[in-house]
Amino acid sequence: MHFWPRFRAQLAGVHTALVLLFILAPIAIMVPISLTSGTMLTLPVPGWSWRWYEVVFTDPRWTGAFLNSLIVGFAATVIATVLGTLAAIGLTWGRFPGQRIILALISVPLILPIIIMGVACFSFYATLGLVGSRFALVLAHAGLAAPVVVTTVMANLKSFDRSLMRAGASLGASPLLAFRRILVPLVAPGICTGALIAFLISFDEVVIASFLTTAEQRTLPRQIFSGVRESISPAIAAAAVVLIFISAAILALTAEMQRRARKLQMRPR
């Protein structure tokens, strides 16, 4: 009787390990390739060297693309976080006709194929004469990331006690003061989680960037994609590893914030 539950647990562990191996093996291969002393993306590597990381962090093409990704990512995150948070409050607490339809429309970027988003953004911003500008890419990435912020903030607002806002109003706080001193601190985990994921979406995005940017405005993912097409170099693997570690760090930070938020919600009051 005791054998079967233990066997099922071991089987589940083996299954999980195999799935993780299947998912992570292609990514893990990039690490030794990025440390090769050769000039080709091949395994086994002829020797070990940090030369390609030096190229990524010193070559103006790579450093410019990395800096551009940071600028676009931070700008898009700020816009997506502000608009997404306000939209989440309105959709959670508001009562107006078409509320479900509006929520569905906001969620469209989450389910629409990214190539369609890229073509649509190109057509729209080409009409405005903004193709090739960093401003267009920031707006496009903000529109792509805002639904994630809406989702995470709405999840936090579901457990928010609105009587706290009424208590603040009864003590003389204006709506803006209550929003800033009561609402924002209590839903900060959801806002910060949404902001981190929004930054990750913008930082890793390549399809829309390919439609909207020129050679001078390349982001890091587009530089990697262009490098694969133009000149196969281990610097591509080094840049990919840097991108992977940045994404993993952001995801780990997001998971830690969610864990602390759950712990805070479970704390007795």
Rank of each mutant, 00 (worst) to 15 (best):
V150H: 05
Y125L: 11
S163I: 00
V131P: 07
V184S: 07
P185R: 15
I191T: 05
I115L: 10
P175Y: 03
T193H: 00
L137W: 04
A198C: 09
P185N: 12
N156W: 01
P147M: 03
G190K: 12
A155E: 14
S123D: 11
F122A: 06
P175R: 07
L130A: 13
V108N: 05
I114K: 12
L128P: 05
R180S: 04
Y125N: 12
I114L: 08
A198H: 03
V108M: 13
N156A: 11
A167E: 08
T152S: 09
F122Q: 14
P109K: 11
F179Q: 11
A145P: 14
V187T: 12
G190C: 11
D161H: 11
R181H: 06
G168R: 08
P109E: 08
L176D: 00
L164I: 00
S170M: 14
A126V: 00
L196N: 01
L157I: 04
L176I: 03
L144K: 04
Y125I: 02
F122H: 15
R181N: 04
N156C: 05
A178L: 04
A146H: 06
V108W: 04
A188K: 15
G172M: 06
L176R: 00
I191Q: 14
L130G: 08
A126N: 15
I182E: 06
I197F: 09
M154P: 03
I111V: 15
G118A: 08
L164Q: 15
G190Q: 13
A195H: 05
A188E: 10
P113G: 06
S133Y: 10
L157V: 03
A155N: 14
F135L: 14
T151A: 14
F122E: 08
R162D: 09
L183H: 05
A198T: 01
L139R: 13
G172T: 02
P189G: 13
A198Y: 00
P113V: 00
A155G: 07
F160Y: 14
I111T: 12
G143K: 10
P185Q: 14
L110K: 12
S170Y: 07
L177K: 13
R134M: 06
P175S: 09
S170R: 14
A136T: 01
R166A: 13
G168D: 04
S123V: 01
A173W: 02
S159I: 02
A120H: 05
A136S: 13
L137I: 00
G118S: 03
A188M: 15
A178I: 03
S159M: 08
S174C: 10
S163K: 15
L157N: 10
F135T: 07
L157E: 09
L186I: 01
I182M: 05
V187A: 07
F124C: 05
F179C: 13
L128H: 10
M117N: 11
D161M: 08
A155D: 13
T151K: 15
K158S: 08
P147A: 02
H141P: 10
L137D: 03
F135H: 10
A195I: 00
A173T: 02
V187W: 05
R180G: 00
A178M: 07
A142N: 04
A195T: 02
V149N: 02
F124P: 05
I116M: 12
G129C: 07
S163R: 15
I191K: 15
A145M: 09
P175E: 06
V119K: 05
A136M: 10
C121S: 14
